[in-house]
């Protein structure tokens, strides 16, 4: 059976990776923690094979991604997630989101590096799930548009639209923080 001490070291080594993968997809820390726990329980069941495997990180990331997507799919009705019925002219969701995150006027324009990371990460987390999830799958999980459409069971056009809207929303948010950011 698995060595508990070795598993604990394994857990500490990979917990940030697994948690981050889940958090970027589900967007809620409590749910990301639940998913991360589930991932590590699965890892424990396969620990004899995973312990020394050079692909352990990839395995964990894939399991975390699948569990997070299953979680989102399970609650898609509640969140109106990836609804194909959502109209195209849904009043610029990115703009609304950027407005809600607008920095206080007193905030200094030149931010230190940690703040800059926080801005981008917070902007990503603040995106609506329908934009954030395909964006994360594309930029962090290296899936192509076609793979994302197949995995989310939505049309290719919707994936492209959602990713484009997500990027535009991120651009607006970053422009608020960095006025010198190039316009398209």
């Amino acid at each position: 059976m698995s060595d508990p001490v070795q598993f604990e070291a394994f857990l500490h080594h990979y917990q940030d990776l697994v948690y981050t993968t889940a958090l970027r997809l589900v967007g809620r820390p409590a749910e990301a923690e639940d998913i991360a726990q589930e991932v590590f329980l699965k890892a424990y069941e396969h620990f004899d094979a995973l312990a020394a495997s050079p692909t352990a990180a990839g395995w964990l990331k894939t399991v975390a991604r699948n569990l997070a997507l299953n979680h989102l799919t399970r609650y898609r009705n509640r969140w109106r997630f990836f609804s194909e019925l959502e109209s195209e002219e849904d009043a610029e969701p990115g703009r609304a989101f950027a407005d809600t995150l607008a920095a206080p006027e007193t905030h200094q324009q030149t931010l230190d590096t940690a703040d800059q990371r926080e801005i981008l990460e917070a902007a990503l987390q603040a995106l609506p799930a329908a934009q954030r999830v395909p964006l994360v799958l594309y930029h962090f999980e290296n899936l192509s548009y076609e793979e994302i459409a197949a995995r989310l069971k939505v049309s290719l056009g919707k994936v492209k639209t959602d990713i484009h809207r997500g990027r535009e929303a991120l651009r607006r948010k970053l422009q608020l923080k960095h006025p010198d950011l190039q316009s398209p």
């Binding site: 857990l11 500490h12 917990q15 940030d16 948690y19 590590f40 329980l41 990371r117 930029h139």
Partner: peptide, 19 residues
């Protein structure tokens, strides 16, 4: 920029929960 974002630190409660 997105790919260079570092991992978020897992909450301190995760490891005890898993163990």
């Amino acid at each position: 920029q997105l790919r260079q974002l570092p991992d978020r630190p897992a909450p301190a409660s995760l490891a005890p929960r898993v163990l």
